[in-house]
Design a protein around this nucleic acid. Structure first.
Length: 296
DNA sequence: CCTTGAACCTGGGCGC
DNA sequence: TGCGCCCAGGTTCAAG
């Protein structure tokens, strides 16, 4: 589920339950996800109070009292859900998977919060997600964060910044926008959507949006606006829920209904007066959806 | 530096 | 009902 808007939605869904709660115990139901958990993970976080939740790019950060930070990435299929009350949280009270889905419940945070005991459960069938521990005061130097580019929210991302990063690049726009070192948090869906909104071909070389003096051409300014708008729209919609993915509070994001090109191969382009047909091509091994008629 | 392809995993959908 | 194949929101590594 996770590009930036989905992770932001997860953060907002979990915050009311997790912030201020005591993390009584972290229960790891296997030794690894994509990577092994840090040796001391469960012991280090158990018994600590949760100070705050935040997000950077596609990473969810859980700040604990004392300065440790749980850093979680949801990979392709990771999700969190909240179960309130009921189940005991005493040590030794192990989670019992009942259904098919629950066999992929890999991490259970047993909480004691303002509204009583609760569990926050991380489920990830494909296990492309991962969790690590960092220290708040050095987190910017952590390998996950060190090279990340600007967030497409707020004001840091602007045409001048992208012009500097795109200058001289032959790399196609699709690949340049997926590069987390340039813009942090975009993924396959929102790159396709932003390129469609700005009328730019995913195959176009990134450097062609920069003039000879290294300044942004109007098309690059339009692209920046499209990126910021599509991300803001998606966050406002609670992200995109593909397949059966649900948000932490059990509700569905609905931005998938607003897709203009993603997963719409063969359908009519929504650009007014265009009349083109959405095509699917493969770039760097991943599907790109675009309208060959109006995206130049 | 660049680009591509494969790898990591499981599950859903489709054609036969 | 089953099998084989392709596809999936991400990242990383090897190889050309």
């Amino acid at each position: 589920m996770p590009e930036l808007p989905e992770v932001e939605t997860v953060k907002r869904g979990l915050s009311p339950t997790m912030e201020g709660a005591l993390l009584v115990r972290a229960e790891l139901r296997r030794p690894d996800l994509r990577f092994p958990f840090p040796e001391n993970f469960a012991a280090a976080v158990s018994g600590r109070r949760i100070v705050a939740l935040s997000r950077r790019a596609k990473y969810l950060m859980i700040d604990l009292e004392g300065g440790d930070v749980i850093v979680a990435h949801l990979g392709m299929s990771g999700s969190f859900r909240i179960e309130a009350g009921a189940e005991p949280v005493a040590p030794g009270a192990f989670h019992q998977p009942r259904g098919k889905d629950e066999k992929h419940d890999h991490v259970i945070f047993h909480l004691d919060g303002r509204s009583g005991p609760a569990r926050v459960i991380y489920n990830d069938p494909r296990r492309f997600g991962f969790m690590d521990l960092a220290r708040r005061d050095t987190i910017a130097e952590h390998a996950f964060f060190r090279e990340l580019g600007e967030e497409p929210t707020g004001n840091a991302l602007d045409a001048a910044y992208l012009a500097a990063r795109f200058a001289g690049k032959i790399q196609p726009l699709k690949a340049a926008l997926l590069d987390q070192r340039i813009i942090a948090g975009l993924g396959n869906i929102y790159v396709c959507e932003a390129l469609w909104r700005s009328g730019l071909s995913p195959k176009r070389a990134a450097g062609t949006l920069v003039d000879r003096r290294g300044r942004p051409k109007p098309a690059l300014t339009a692209l920046v606006e499209a990126i910021r708008a599509v991300i803001a729209d998606a966050i406002a919609a609670g992200g995109s829920s593909l397949r059966d993915h649900i948000q932490a509070d059990g509700s569905l994001g609905y931005f998938q209904h607003a897709f203009s090109v993603y997963d719409r191969e063969g359908e009519t382009c929504r650009t007014s007066g265009c009349g083109g047909t959405v095509a699917r091509i493969v770039q760097a091994g991943r599907s790109t959806f675009h309208c060959p008629r109006c995206q130049k």
